Amino acid sequence: MTVPANGLERRTERELGSLQRRDAYRASLVIASLVLVAELAFTAIDLSWSAPALLVSLRLAHAFLALGLLIALVLLRKQFRWGHGDLVLVIVGLPFLPIFWIAELAVAALGEPWAPFVGAKLTAVALAMLTPARLWLGALFVALYVGEALAIWTVEEFARHAALLATGEPWVTVSFGVLALVMLGYRARTRRTEQEFIRTRVQAESLEALARIFLAVRDRANTPLQTLEVGVALLEKRHPDAAPIAARMERALSRLRSLSGTLSRHRPIDWEPGAQPPDLDALLDALEARRENRANGARGPGVH
């Protein structure tokens, strides 16, 4: 039994697109919310030790950017598309680069022991779990943050700070970056598994619906087939001179019986013996209603 490839592929693409949009939208909301909360929290921490005004201003600007993005995501929910997740990541991810650099220099200038590259490590792990759309873009940002940490360590000569010798840096940050990349790779594998599962489920549902139609066609054809068989038998008995016609009718009936036998072999997966046979008209009406609903959904495929 086969299902028309074009229809099956279109349905599969709709299912996958809906899943991707929903996941990307939710991840975008979480990312924007986390950036807003994190920047406000770090701003409060920075103010507690009289951080440079530039750093505080950049954090506040980043927080307001995340707030505006969050509001836009809520208001434009129906217009959200999977690729918009990449835009969200770029908008909230790029400002971290100057903020991290300035923050490290400001803390280093205090001359007190500190844990370097906290922002880079936390952001790398967050991206591993929450990259909304294209995972390679999340991997690129992880590489940028870790690369920036290495650049700061080298250019600003952090190795000369005795307080940092026991922190294991910059290799701890590199380890966080590697961990984040491994997690992104695992997410890519999980996505492929989900997509394959959806393809299998869509095909199974389509095959089951087709099997129900086959069974309904067979049940509806049984009575006329039996009537024709009786008619041919009577024709042969009462009108022997019509034997050639009866032979042609018998050959046609043989083909119909073969078709009925073929249809009988394809039963729905959950068909139970003794259950009422499906109604063909009801099945066709249900399929038509489903097709119209999907057509309407295709005209307005917002996030659900």
Rank of each mutant, 00 (worst) to 15 (best):
T193H: 06
A44K: 07
K78V: 01
G185M: 04
K237W: 05
P277V: 08
A298F: 03
E196N: 12
Q226M: 15
I102L: 14
V146L: 13
L40E: 02
A149Q: 11
L164G: 02
V74M: 05
P95R: 12
V107N: 03
G261T: 01
G231A: 07
S18D: 12
A233V: 06
P278Y: 13
L89I: 05
A72M: 07
T200R: 15
E112L: 13
H62V: 02
I213L: 14
R299C: 02
G300E: 12
H62R: 01
P277H: 05
A286E: 12
P116S: 06
L110V: 00
E157F: 03
H239R: 15
E208Q: 11
A233I: 05
A109E: 13
W114I: 00
V202S: 09
A106I: 07
I245R: 11
L58S: 09
H239M: 13
R238M: 09
E104V: 10
G83Y: 14
V3C: 00
D46M: 09
L181I: 09
A289I: 01
V118D: 02
P301G: 14
Y25D: 01
A24D: 03
R160F: 08
F100T: 03
V232P: 06
L67C: 05
V56Q: 07
A221G: 03
P268C: 06
W136S: 07
W136V: 04
G177H: 07
V142G: 02
D270H: 13
R199Q: 11
S18Y: 07
S50W: 04
A124R: 07
V107R: 14
R192K: 11
D270G: 06
G302R: 10
T193S: 07
F96Y: 13
R11T: 15
V88D: 02
P277K: 05
W82Y: 15
T173Y: 04
D241C: 00
A27R: 15
L122W: 12
V35G: 08
A247F: 03
V217M: 13
L65I: 06
T190G: 03
D241F: 06
L105M: 10
E250D: 11
A120I: 00
L87V: 14
E236T: 11
V74H: 07
A53V: 14
A295E: 13
L228C: 04
Y186M: 13
L8V: 02
L40Y: 03
I71A: 12
E229M: 13
P132Q: 05
A233S: 07
T12L: 12
R160Q: 14
E157Y: 00
S28E: 08
A41V: 15
R189S: 14
R134Q: 06
L287E: 15
G83P: 04
